[in-house]
Amino acid sequence: MRIQCEHLSYTYNAGSPFAVNALRDVSLTIEEGEFFGILGHTGSGKSTFVQHLNGLLRLPSSLKKYKPKKPKKGETPPPAPVLRVGDYDLTDKKTDFRALRKKVGMVFQYPEYQLFAETVEKDVAFGLKNFLQKGEKLSEEEIKSAVSDALSIVGLDGREMAVRSPFDLSGGQKRRVAIAGVIVTKPEILILDEPAAGLDPLGKREVMELLHNIHGDWCKTVLIVSHDMDEIAENCTRAAVFSEGTVAMCAPPAELFKNAEALLSLGLDIPLTAKLVLALKERGIDVDCDYTTEDFIAKVLALKGGRA
């Protein structure tokens, strides 16, 4: 499913003195199969944007009580927003938002705090049972096997885990269980808000590895929201930088980080590799790499080898 978004704006507390323009005229297209990164400061609108993609936040025109405003004379109305996820038109009130949520899985920040059931199996099966169509039924075995598949793709032993209480697990395990609870319905698009937040470096790497396992056969498109530039540089095919409610840049990481000054001027960090490239540049050495650690090391070694 392709995500197409044009002229999307969103205001919190509209019409009150506390109104905040969280998104201003955002246009962004994400193709099927991408591992897409969304970067930006707190309050840059990135979370607001992703919450639109599965209908947790709605465009005014998709609400039941919506009445189109008549444009005032002599005033050109702002361009109508477009938001399409696959075949779903999110500006339309007739769209089945529950069906959409089945296709677009969303893992919130610190997802381990949403666990609630007595056993891991029941918790993971929660989404699976919720998304059943009317009249559709799953047998015990089908549920069991779907749950154990989901647990095994996040790197947990399905059979051993299933009967345990989610509250007895370690932090990393809880997070995996929570991710399993979202991907168990095999959404086509998986959105994760800071999936590695609060984990140690090893835990971070493991989470990223499991996302790569999920990406492809299990979920065609993966979207991660992140502060961590290294994470984006290492993993994403493309990334968008949000700033003050708009998309400031959108490019593959290799191009994005070439423009390190622009990122720094937005008050964002750059990945370690980009910092090293800048430091080497100051000393008159140009390293042309795609900013993944592996490539950077290979290129630097090649330079060294070339000279020695």
Binding site: L56, R101, K102, F108, Q114, F116, F126, N130, V182, T185
Partner: peptide, 28 residues
């Protein structure tokens, strides 16, 4: 929101179903 994203439904069904629907919110 997190439970809604997992398909939880807080708006439909009878009173008993609606109260039960809040368990996934209350426990966490």
């Amino acid at each position: 929101n997190a439970q809604k994203a997992r398909g939880a439904d807080f708006e439909s069904g009878g009173p008993v179903k609606r109260i039960r629907a809040f368990i996934p919110i209350l426990v966490p």
